[in-house]
Amino acid sequence: MPDKLERYRSKRDRTRTPEPIPAEAPPGGDGNAFVIQEHHARSLHWDLRLERDGVLVSWAVPKGLPADPKTNHLAVQTEDHPMEYLTFHGEIPKGEYGGGTMTVWDTGTYETEKWSDREVKVVLHGNRSSGRFVLFQTRGKNWMIHRMDGPARDPFPPLEPMLPTERAKPPKDSSAYAFEFAWGGRRLLVPIEGGRTDAAREHPWLRGLAESFGSRTAVLDGELATLGGAEILVFYDLLYDDGHSLVTEPYTARRSALESLGLSGGHWQTAPSWPGDAGPVRQAAREQGLPGVVAKRLDSPYEPGLSKAWLFIPA
């Protein structure tokens, strides 16, 4: 019987990598475990591994498992891996095959509905991933992965920003609002999926932000502002988070979810917000040369387009 791990061993040096490298051929087996590993290698991807005949049959999935049956994702079949890889995590040294950080993203069991050389149909039962999927070979060596059951998440919201209505004076019921700086910059909505964002086409430095989200999906609302001579993306709202739309949630819930992300980097930060009193915020905006403040109703949902729930008050 051919050694299914021969190709795996040929790509690795046991003196240079912490990965498990069994010395003997796998004994076979009929288990049904699976693992998905988040792999920050040369490019971020997820490795799906299904137990089959004593090894883990593996695919690298650059965008992770598809959440919607309308969208297929590329799946590149790689060499079979040893069973010990079910729990492997750690740092593969730079310069080695697959060099980078690997973490276990999900584990569980699966049911096989079909398994052939060109098509693998399974039902995953994991902590973070579940459902019916089919992996199928396309022309050449590439494979695709398709979700066969219903969407596992809410659809992305329309990418249209909520805009404030201008008003000369702050609202009288100030306790019903939070007050933020009006930055005077350019509005930017940032959708993130599979560790990537289309916004990076115009702003390549956003690739680092998107990759830090891993498999977490999000749509961030913010503004490109110039602070201290540097361009900073200031985020002040969260429309979508980890598969769930937040547009119908009140401002307070969206703001709490945004702050929990802890967004802080060399090119981006979370905007400050102060509930209850416009006076000090307006004065600070005036002193910093900002155009004014934005009053946001605490109970307001996210309404694309011009809204009276957000008020721009000049400094």
Rank of each mutant, 00 (worst) to 15 (best):
K94R: 15
G99Y: 00
G54M: 01
F88C: 05
D154N: 06
P291E: 06
H203P: 07
T248N: 15
T138W: 05
P164R: 13
K172S: 13
A75F: 05
Q288M: 14
L233V: 05
K11L: 15
R216N: 03
A284S: 10
R201L: 12
D241E: 13
L159H: 01
V76A: 11
W105V: 13
E24G: 12
L56I: 01
R12I: 05
L189E: 09
S212Q: 03
L311M: 12
L258Y: 00
D3V: 01
T252N: 14
P291Q: 07
P155Y: 04
T103V: 13
P161K: 08
P170Q: 11
P250Q: 10
G28D: 00
T87C: 03
G64F: 00
A67T: 13
A285F: 04
D13N: 14
P22D: 01
T71Y: 11
P155W: 02
A152I: 15
Y236G: 12
V122Q: 02
D68R: 10
R254Y: 11
W183Q: 09
E111C: 07
P170Y: 09
E211H: 00
P82T: 02
L209H: 00
P301A: 09
E223A: 13
P22F: 01
K141W: 05
A60I: 05
I313V: 14
K169F: 12
G126M: 09
S10Q: 07
L233D: 02
Q283R: 15
G150N: 15
F312R: 13
S264N: 07
R139W: 07
Y85Q: 12
P170E: 07
H73P: 05
K70T: 15
H203E: 05
G99I: 03
P26Y: 00
H89R: 10
L290P: 08
P272R: 06
W274H: 15
G126F: 02
P291A: 08
Q137R: 15
I145T: 12
A152E: 07
R52C: 04
E193D: 10
L290S: 06
G108R: 06
P27H: 05
W59L: 10
F235E: 08
P171N: 12
G222P: 10
D3T: 01
P69Q: 12
L56A: 00
T138I: 14
A315R: 11
L227H: 07
L48T: 01
W274A: 14
P272L: 14
H244S: 13
Y251F: 11
S215V: 07
K63G: 06
E24F: 04
